[in-house]
Design a protein around this nucleic acid. Sequence first.
DNA 1: ATGAAAGCGCTAACAC
DNA 2: GTGTTAGCGCTTTCAT
Lengths: 354, 354
Amino acid sequence: MTAEIHPLDDAVAESSHRRPPSISDVARSAGVSVATVSRVLRDHPDVRSATRRLVQQAVQDLHYRPSSLARALVTGRSRMLALLVSDIANPFYPQLARCIEREAAASGYTLVICSTDDDPAESVRYLNRLMAYGLDGIIHASVGEDEAELLDAAPDLPIVFTNRRPASSDVSFVVSDHRRGARRLTKHLLDLGHRHIGFIAGPSHASNANERLLGFDQAMKATPDARSSVIRGGFDPSSGRAAVREWLAQGDRPTAIIGVNDSLTIGALESLIEARLRVPEDISIAGFDDVWLASSPIVGLTSVAQDIDELGRRSMQILLEALTAPRGRPVRQVLRSSLQIRKTTGPVPPQHRK
Amino acid sequence: MTAEIHPLDDAVAESSHRRPPSISDVARSAGVSVATVSRVLRDHPDVRSATRRLVQQAVQDLHYRPSSLARALVTGRSRMLALLVSDIANPFYPQLARCIEREAAASGYTLVICSTDDDPAESVRYLNRLMAYGLDGIIHASVGEDEAELLDAAPDLPIVFTNRRPASSDVSFVVSDHRRGARRLTKHLLDLGHRHIGFIAGPSHASNANERLLGFDQAMKATPDARSSVIRGGFDPSSGRAAVREWLAQGDRPTAIIGVNDSLTIGALESLIEARLRVPEDISIAGFDDVWLASSPIVGLTSVAQDIDELGRRSMQILLEALTAPRGRPVRQVLRSSLQIRKTTGPVPPQHRK
DNA sequence: ATGAAAGCGCTAACAC
DNA sequence: GTGTTAGCGCTTTCAT
């Protein structure tokens, strides 16, 4: 392959920093108009196949790459999507993110993951920043109290909520049946003989946390001699640790503990271990989400599993539909969760039996 | 607040879908030219403060938001950065990502996190996709064999490697002193009396993994009666499990195991537990990175800690400099790692003492 | 089937 | 100080 010589081409080796080729460079090189190049690039049928090949050749030769920027500017669609999560360090979210990422890429969309810390201001800041880039849509999986602000910062932006149920009634969502899951888990503990169960509840603004608490309450209320203790906090391991410390300090600790998610529950478990309590002989503990670590033999945490992949797949699918069909009816889906019983829950210790 | 009436304004309630205001709308509303509006937006000094206020008022009234898209198209800078990671589900990366995200946002940059699976094709695909959006720079923290491809897919793009040392000599990087860390960890085990140490090495293409292996080898070679077994694999927990299974199957297992990262090591630990081996009484085990889970009392894994936050801060700082100063000399930094001794490493069991 | 031309929303000369 | 204007790289009528 020998280099051709272009006599008197303007800018022959003129500068070491040559700008990337534009569509008009391709057009010139192929001897056609920019419109034709544009058609070829978008697989428009009205192009003679000879012309098409000509253009494709020029594209190759020049290593031409179309500018999504310019394209987005003129079409008004950036093919860029955002996923809002509470905290990418909570293992539930990477799993969701990877799944959604894959789906998005398969449909030609680029996904930007935003860790909001459940701070509404941060959510809105992110959203505004991305809207300036022409963001096409959002999957909202974080649980901060940002729904109203978000919805009116971007009234016309397709959005689907997942992991949390939106308050507004005309927004699409996919969630797990948190309440039912909580009921089943609570029932499991009651069946094991526990009559004093602690619930580490997470922040009161989070709808998924509240539904889980609700399910717990329902199951407990249905059992006359059962007694519950609820402690509020955050979603992270340190909140779990704090809750356990509080129960231990006050002397009258529950014989079983439910944490509102696995991340927090693992923190609680840490504190139990530090306090030399044996799990489940002295105390039982269980969580929600069934993240990878929960199922690991190291921890073996009893947990209410969400079908994270299905959550991701469906929310992406709903968003894609909203993206093409402008104003469809909101889609509302609830997925089954499943109770995974492992080694952190066992019968109530003898001395606490009635 | 009563609504004003705009008689005969064009497009009065003409459609429910009004397009967002552009800079020329603002200009018209403020009674100035677009150039002046642009100046105000960019804090250009050559604007009378009265005019400035006028414009700012119009911006507020119209809820105007400048289009980063258009801006990027004309300036050639998108203020968008990418972080390439191997696998966002490996807890090392979210920690790094959050730190870098924060730094980026503080400098007005938006960060896109890309999980490459250490697949070069995936890296390049991501990069191309983002370059079409005018990506300004990259922090490369994934360890796939993609260096050459990446570097010539984007020869002029500022890039800094972190977590891995690039082969090319004129690329900036910040890494931890993996080799020294490995030597210290190995020495710790040798001091405990271990003479047969297994190393689960990760993929052979990963430079950080190789440096850790190198450090291990150095320390082992310096001890005449010490014997090592090395098993190659991936970076994830299942590779750790596979390695342990192999050692157990072949009967002559090491008395101590080092995993090339914590994620993999935790997998190995799982298999030890399943095999009813007591840690550290029967066998010792340790890893690298010191992710949060390693330091948790549940696991309490001995680990060589990287200063992840510092890694993030510095790589961002180097990238920012490269972004402003076009062609500076490459920056090469090596950070200290520190050995965290916890409860998974202990003296060699009596029957294995010489 | 192809081309010419008008923008998309902005910045950056350059004029006044 | 402020306005005019020519693009940035593309898509999209509308002609031909």
